[in-house]
Nucleic acid binder design. Structure first.
Lengths: 209, 209, 209, 209
DNA sequence: AATGAATGAGAGTTCATTCAT
DNA sequence: GATGAATGAACTCTCATTCAT
């Protein structure tokens, strides 16, 4: 399974880095406000004004640290990717059993998403606002996943099969279940969802004879 | 697994229905242009002006048939849902073997998505533009899916398991693989992808002893 | 005397042409208001708002006919060039005596400038706002001038000498005297100024023996 | 020939004079940077930020030495006037022959302008940014010129004629030829241009019988 | 039914200037 | 003396929507 080439994006000149503690604090305040406001209202409804109001600074201050609305957004997406990868690797790091890692990774993902619903929204919207960031986000995930599956298959820990497609399929399960709870407001306890899905992932649909 | 309540919206219906053949043609032209333009540029970048230009009519004409930009969009989403359900039920209708239906449904979905990439984009964006339409779209799908799985499990054709979560998980696989090809530009032949994913769905990851 | 090449400018897509009489009237109203306001306040002080207020239309209307503030400006400069060339060729057209044509051209120029002081300002400012338009404006003038001088020299009607440099020098005299009255508010009657300058142009400074 | 009255402005002087050598150096750095940046980008495009960046100091530092953007500009214009008058009087000082002085003054002017093209731009733009400074600049020049011509005429060294209009006309020639090379990029050697123009100035266009 | 001119609110962004450190 | 963070007014431009013809 091969990927079509995607140009590596040339980043715009970023708003300059703060040089003092005060500046650093302001920058973080804006970033936090952006997460909150964009997560709540969506990228297009969230105006720079609403973000800076939330952050308690003047509108012009925004442009000291970010060169555009798009730029904060991209930064947000990148940050979320880091956070999520961190959470998942914490949960599965060093697990010998691949199938168990699968279960714990799913649980960690769903737990994180449930407590950061805005995050979910922001990443989804990135598809339209900053396609490059969106693709980078999932590519990074998929690649890690693929490696894990490929090694497990090689080691004979799971059935053989194309690791690439499998990685995307399994990610699809996680995303769909995350959406199920965040967007559709399902209230089934996470642990139950994890068990049901894990059973499907591990044994599939086929009836054993 | 219970759903949180979601209010069913009362649709505005200011856009008049066409009364002549000429009117009907104009309406279709606008709808088609909207699909093309919104699919290409996204909802927010697509202006009424770009849609009517594509359709070859004056801007004012738009408002004869649709009461707002949101309205065309919702209509588009609904139409795509109908088309997709049609395609899938054509492909799987009357199949006795549930597992084979699973395979054919996936194949039909991926084939359709590959030939209507804008569709994919529009449905995804609905999440932000018209959340109600988005939820309705997936609820309808999920419900059909759930029923199929529940019946198959009851009939002993597949292993038992919560049909609701399974439906979402399997939809997640289909969506992820569709995105894999449309958004990420993967070029693996659909039939291969279908086989690999179907194998996973049917037998899971576990190694047989 | 050779000119360095200057790229012929690729015009921006102009705001679309009006299709009805009403539109045409609006467009002219905006253009007239722009001349007035920019001539009075200068390009940078003149805001789109002040122009449309003067024209009695909404701000958005401006962008139906012009794609930017720069664009109206360029159009203004071009129009003024046409007007001025028209006035001068009316005054000198068909004159057999080159030296007399010189006098009448100067008089026509100064008379026109005195009654259109904004014009003067706009053309000068073009140097900074739209250098291409500025250069085109003077190149066109200079070329016509140069030809007239070259022919007169060839015909033996005036002393021989490089027509190019002479054309620029004589244009410089006209501009300086125009500025003298418009910018510096000198009140000497035009006819006197013309006579004095013409005497200089024709006979120079040297004392005859 | 009379001049309309022009109010002599009372300059603000908030920008403090430097009191240390370090301060003096900083002030010169800002002034030099302003000349460069404004000459290159024009007054309106040149921001305080771009000037201080070029000067290598912080933005706030600017306001220690200058009270506003307009102020640096005015100072620049005044300085250029001083430099130019210096250069010209160096070149013509003590010349007995008025006609030769005319030639050498023109040469000095064109030479200076060719090596300081930003200067040309700055003075021109002063017309819009600081009309008072602009008028003062030319009035000072014109007055000196007028006196020279008046004395020469009185002494019988040149033909009689209104010194005021002549001064403006001759200045116009110099400016036009300067612009010819700086703005229009003409590449004819200065000495040639000087000779051709000087011939025109001295003997005019008329054919001798 | 169709046109296209007109509207005006609102968005993102820039920048001269001020001020605490 | 120098810094750089912060301000907020002002500007250009876009676009969904309305309406007279």
């Amino acid at each position: 399974m091969k990927m079509a080439e995607t140009g590596t994006p040339a980043k715009d000149q970023t708003g300059r880095e703060p040089k003092t503690a005060r500046g650093e604090a302001t920058r973080r305040a804006i970033l936090g406000a952006a997460e909150k406001v964009i997560g709540r209202q969506g990228f297009n409804e969230a105006s720079i004004g609403s973000i800076t109001r939330e952050a308690g600074v003047a509108q012009g201050t925004f442009y000291i640290y970010f060169s555009s609305k798009d730029e904060v957004f991209s930064e947000l997406v990148a940050e979320m990717g880091r956070m999520l990868r961190h959470v998942i690797s914490e949960a599965t790091g060093g697990m010998a059993d691949r199938l168990e890692a699968e279960r714990e990774g799913l649980r960690a993902f769903l737990t994180f998403v449930a407590s950061h619903p805005e995050l979910y929204r922001i990443v989804q919207e990135a598809q339209f606002v900053d396609p490059d960031a969106y693709r980078a986000y999932f590519r990074t995930f998929a690649e890690g996943y693929r490696q894990g599956l490929a090694e497990a298959a090689e080691a004979g820990a799971i059935r053989p099969g194309d690791a690439d497609v499998r990685a995307w399929a399994l990610m699809g399960i996680a995303r769909a279940l995350g959406e199920y709870s965040v967007v559709f407001g399902d209230t089934t306890p996470i642990d139950e969802v994890v068990d049901i899905a894990h059973d499907l992932i591990v044994d599939g649909l086929r009836k054993r004879s």
